[in-house]
Amino acid sequence: MDTDQHISRRSRIAILWRGDAASRQEATAQNSRFVRVFEALAASGIDAFPVVYDEAVADLVRDQLLTMDGVLVWVDPIHQGKTRATLDPLLREVAAKGPMKRSWVSAHPEIILKMGVKDVLYRTRHLGWGADTHRYATADAFRAEFPPRLRAAGPRVLKQNRGNGGQGVWKVEALPNADATVRVLHALRGSQPEEMPLEAFMARCEPYFGWGGCIIDQAFQPRLPEGMIRCYVSGTKVAGFGHQLIKALIPPPPEGPDSPQAQPGPRIMHGPDAAQFQTLRRLMEDEWIPQLMATLAIDEASLPVIWDADFLYGPRDADGADTYVLCEINASSCFAIPDEAPAAIARTVSDRIGRNMESDAGR
């Protein structure tokens, strides 16, 4: 059944991103980076409105959102020292109090806390995308368990639970013939390898427990230089792929971390039908996404309208085929997106509005 026919009026959707007072005054659908999303929603009969968020105008943003049928949110967990500590309660309130109490938020803060944090790597380690993954819930557990694991298992990657842009992600390797000394490399762009006592490095990481609640520990993947595959998903359906030769956690060249040679390659975008990624697409749609939903107790209607899963190449299997290791899920601010993604977003939004209308009619 075509859900569009159940929409008795043009629905109103907010597209929200972080900005400042000046950009809030100047923001339009046409001058935003989301212009193609606005266009796709309009083509589906949905009115979309730009809403620029800053903590200083949180009350005004709340008033705007309470007039909407839904909101699509693009706000990073950490941006220039600002977090979502004020935004997330606001979005929870909007989801509970919107028009006819059926407004929805994508991605809802509760869904982000389930799938858009590094803890998802531990909770889903049993899936086919899993790797050697551990979780430290306290600083005491970190101090007790990480040193012997590092010595026994080789290079590790530590990740704070909430972050973006490489913040709080470290490659750690023990130095041979140097008791309790490690070489560490931050994934943040421009970082240089450092050698220091393991105790000092662990002390540097302990604030992550206050912000994110835990630290996730994965085995370093040696095929990292072959690039990262970003699988874009709208709801439960793959909307495209991006492949990028990343430089994070790879020591910079002799020319230095700011040199052209140290910069990541462009992310090459592909549609969902790209031949080289069909195995990954099948695994995602047929196995991993349903298993993710079951593991995290997320229903289809609650999945983000746009999200992505970042994969590294794992060890080749017995037949020489690629395997894939999940290194992150992005649900807070998934952008840039493939050319095919705006239409996929519009289809998912239209479907969810239609389902809400059907639900209201059945009450």
Results as ranks from 00 to 15, higher is better:
45 G>F: 07
241 F>D: 08
23 S>W: 10
282 R>P: 01
34 F>N: 04
92 R>A: 06
112 I>N: 04
173 E>N: 06
186 H>I: 00
222 P>K: 05
37 V>L: 15
285 E>G: 02
108 H>F: 03
358 E>D: 12
17 W>Y: 11
25 Q>P: 00
166 G>H: 05
307 W>F: 13
28 T>D: 07
94 V>F: 12
20 D>H: 08
103 S>H: 01
305 V>D: 13
61 V>H: 04
215 I>H: 03
184 V>N: 02
240 G>N: 09
272 P>H: 09
107 A>I: 00
318 A>G: 10
131 A>H: 05
9 R>C: 08
326 L>H: 09
108 H>D: 14
327 C>H: 05
156 R>L: 15
49 F>N: 04
232 Y>P: 06
327 C>P: 07
38 F>D: 04
167 Q>Y: 10
166 G>A: 09
346 A>I: 10
292 L>M: 15
291 Q>Y: 04
113 L>M: 11
277 F>C: 06
174 A>M: 13
242 G>L: 06
19 G>S: 06
30 Q>S: 14
13 I>C: 04
254 P>T: 02
230 R>T: 15
315 P>I: 04
309 A>W: 10
96 A>V: 02
315 P>T: 09
82 K>A: 14
161 N>G: 11
65 L>R: 07
12 R>I: 01
142 F>C: 11
206 E>N: 03
171 K>M: 12
357 M>L: 12
258 D>G: 15
54 D>L: 08
172 V>Q: 05
196 M>G: 03
269 M>Y: 10
279 T>P: 00
334 C>Y: 02
201 F>R: 03
310 D>C: 12
198 L>Q: 13
337 I>R: 05
304 P>L: 09
16 L>Y: 05
63 D>W: 02
84 R>T: 07
181 T>M: 15
